[in-house]
């Protein structure tokens, strides 16, 4: 049996996201940036957590545990550290050692040497780091480009369904996107591609995916 040290392992990922992530899923030892969408970050945590991995959320006091549970994240294996204070780096490094996946708020300042050390530790421990907020040094940046809600009218109804256009940008500038529903991210849909939804396409404008009654935005 030969251990593959160079090729990084793939963590279980929600199928809807696995399609657009480089390498076909969350890679252990990599870092991902999620541009201001806690929903997307939770969807990334959900895959590993459902298979028994420990997750940790550092410096995100607004993280909703109830929504996390809705995504299938096991709350018993979820650690919250809302306020690491000035010890952001040492806390993150200590947790990278023990848990499989760490979600952090993008640090305001991190010296390149410190980032390199953290990165080495990630690779050594086989953990994945997700930063909430833009983060240039990350291996891949995910974001919600478009979003539409269904179920809400003018003073009536309530939010029911959401469809999102999710983009994944690699450092090379290569962009992939997918149209997914919230239920798909939550794993309540079985992850199959919806009929008529060309899920993969490099830079293909597929705005017609949104049904007419859904609001479209740019």
């Amino acid at each position: 049996m030969q251990a593959s040290t160079l090729a990084s392992r793939c963590m279980p990922t929600v199928p809807a996201l696995a399609r657009i992530l480089p390498g076909g899923g969350l890679q252990s030892g990599s870092s991902y940036a999620v541009r201001d969408s806690a929903t997307l970050a939770m969807a990334l945590l959900a895959g590993p957590s459902a298979t028994g991995a420990w997750c940790c959320v550092i410096g995100v006091p607004d993280f909703s545990a109830e929504a996390a549970q809705g995504f299938g994240i096991n709350l018993e294996r979820l650690i919250l550290i809302p306020d690491p204070g000035s010890q952001w780096l040492s806390v993150t490094a200590a947790l990278v050692d023990v848990v499989s996946i760490v979600l952090v708020r993008t640090p305001e300042h991190l010296a390149p040497t410190e980032w390199a050390r953290l990165k080495a530790r990630l690779r050594q421990r086989g953990a994945a780091l997700i930063t909430l907020g833009s983060w240039k040094q990350s291996d891949s940046t995910l974001g919600v480009a478009e979003s539409a809600w269904e179920g809400l009218g003018a003073g009536s109804g309530h939010l029911r369904k959401r469809r999102m256009k999710i983009t994944a940008t690699q450092p090379s500038g290569r962009l992939r996107h997918a149209y997914v529903g919230l239920a798909e991210l939550q794993g309540t849909a079985d992850g199959t591609v919806l009929p008529g939804a060309p899920s993969l396409g490099d830079g293909d404008p597929a705005g017609s995916l949104f049904e007419p009654r859904l609001m479209k935005s740019s």
Binding site: L75, I79, L80, I81, D83, Q87, V91, A94, D97, V98
Partner: peptide, 17 residues
């Protein structure tokens, strides 16, 4: 690992929900 973080930040800083 969590005991280490707790001894850095204090008992109430490491939480489960």
């Amino acid at each position: 690992g969590l005991a280490r973080v707790q001894s850095m930040l204090g008992h109430g800083a490491v939480l489960t929900a």
